[in-house]
Amino acid sequence: MSGQEVVFTLLGVVAVGSAVLVVTTRRLVHAALWLVVSFGALAGGYLVLTAEFVAWVQVLIYVGAVVVLLLFGIMLTRAPIGESADLDSGNRWAALGVAVATAAVLVTVVVMGFGDARTPLRAGGGSAEELGAGVFRTWVLPFEVLSVLLLASLVGAIVLSRSDIGGDKGGDV
């Protein structure tokens, strides 16, 4: 077990453990904050895997933007700050069974498929320069399509959340 593997294992334990806390905690705000820990540990894992640029984008967008949006959503839906008893629905045991089965199948498949595969990690493979060249040379068309998609979804979100448009079809509830 090399040093990289030790560090990655520790980060993975933190990521999976805080993810478990996200889906089991009884406080909504704590779930969002554990999500920060999970995403931060995953960003560390990307750093260990030499994907620096992806790691910083992960920190910026997930830890920065997505979690803040989720906290906004929690506040705007007047969620209780303290403990709330009914965050889990009635089918949690069925969900636990499905999740354990999914984990068993996936872990079996990846361990049987890639159990003895190794790769040396070399620095520089995921730097901003390499990825920038990749995005703006090879993948420039998907990149532009993606920007249109992002614009469309932002316009959609604005249209959905404004209550003063939509005319006479009951937009002002």
């Binding site: 990521a15 999976v16 996200v22 999970s38 089918n91 499905v98 984990a103 990846v110 595969a117």
Partner: peptide
Amino acid sequence: MHLAYPTVVAALLFSVGVYGVLAR
């Protein structure tokens, strides 16, 4: 780096997400 570490972590994260989607 052994490839099993990140893939197993990803599989566990995915199943935790499956549990959350179904149970919350």
